[in-house]
Design a protein around this nucleic acid. Structure first.
Lengths: 186, 186
DNA sequence: CAAAACTCGTACACACCTGTACGAGTTAGG
DNA sequence: CCTAACTCGTACAGGTGTGTACGAGTTTTG
């Protein structure tokens, strides 16, 4: 056995707390993260030898979740616009969660570490939008990179509205899909 | 006379440096800001007694610039969509500059201080979008607050693309206006 | 030119964050 | 049940940021 049951549970709690804290404030302290996880700071260091190690593991964990998500979604068949909207409808919160940790980690880890992960994780969305652009369902008068950025930003905007209590989750997903559809339509 | 000529020049340099530094990193240190302004840290404290005072003044300064900008622009006559796109075309960088300092300041000052300024500064855009919605040129199936957020986010996205060297300024303004038009169209 | 205004570097106190060490208490699992 | 794994609080070192004090040099202004 590698980890005792309670230890494994705590590692999970730490990762969750780190994602939550760093999503709101990229400079959240280890003390803050530990407290949110309901643990002492020393215990946190027992599982992650340094802040950098925690960030690495957080990124790795986020990668695993997104990979699992994309494995179940079928993005390569059918119209690209329907596939994109379906993905957003079912998973926009998970995607936002990842975008948040990614941008939080970006400033504190060497770029090379992050870029490799980014392509692996969110590259699927890049490819989906590129396909829709080729097939004529998405507009072709603007670069693919811009369309991708627009989608990410709108996801973040929708999540923020929910956090601030302006939108319910239903309202947010409705506004998000309606706006993305209009912004990308050919 | 209130300030000597060189002192006034330095205050200006400090505000500019603070906006630049805090726009990229909301937690930039006073040392960093002073160095970018070409001054010693002590001199900075000579003009602004505390970090909080600097942030307040930065917000006040930003308000003044935007007010001056909006005074020359005529947002209340003609079609709302044309007015919005014209405003973006001429002033999206100034607007982004302000949105950047606003979000930087938001985490470090009491919310009440910020909200009052926000309404005063960017309320003009809120009203413009609301007018367009009433007149039927902007979509009415989504709340005004959401449309406003979308515009702000897209402005930030465009500015970021320029900073990262992905877009030239011409490309950015083209992509921004085309996307905003599509996203808000009725 | 002279006084006032301004700037400079250095230095200090206080606070916070990081990472490590220690010893003692608690919990899971064979 | 008993050992190993895990957790806890406290405490320390080194680093960094904030705000203040001091004395000396420089520049503007009248």
């Amino acid at each position: 056995m590698a980890l005792r049951a309670d230890a494994a549970r705590n590692v999970e709690a730490i990762l969750e707390a780190a994602a939550a804290c760093l999503g709101r404030n990229p400079d959240a302290s280890m003390t803050e993260i530990a407290k949110r996880a309901g643990l002492g700071r020393v215990t946190l260091y027992g599982h992650f030898p340094s802040r950098e190690a925690l960030l690495h593991e957080l990124m790795r964990d986020s990668l695993a979740r997104i990979s699992r998500l994309l494995a179940t979604a079928d993005l390569d068949s059918g119209p690209a616009d329907a596939a994109l909207l379906g993905l957003l409808r079912s998973s926009w919160q998970v995607l936002d969660h990842h975008v948040g940790t990614l941008s939080a980690v970006r400033r504190q880890l060497p770029d090379s570490d992050v870029l490799a992960h980014h392509e692996q994780i969110l590259g699927a969305i890049d490819r989906l939008i590129a396909r829709g652009r080729r097939d004529g369902v998405f507009r072709a008068d603007l670069p693919v990179e811009w369309l991708v950025t627009v989608v990410y930003r709108l996801i973040q905007a929708a999540a923020e509205q929910v956090e601030e209590g302006v939108f319910t989750e239903e309202q947010a997903v409705g506004a998000l899909t309606a706006t993305v559809a209009a912004a990308l339509r050919a």
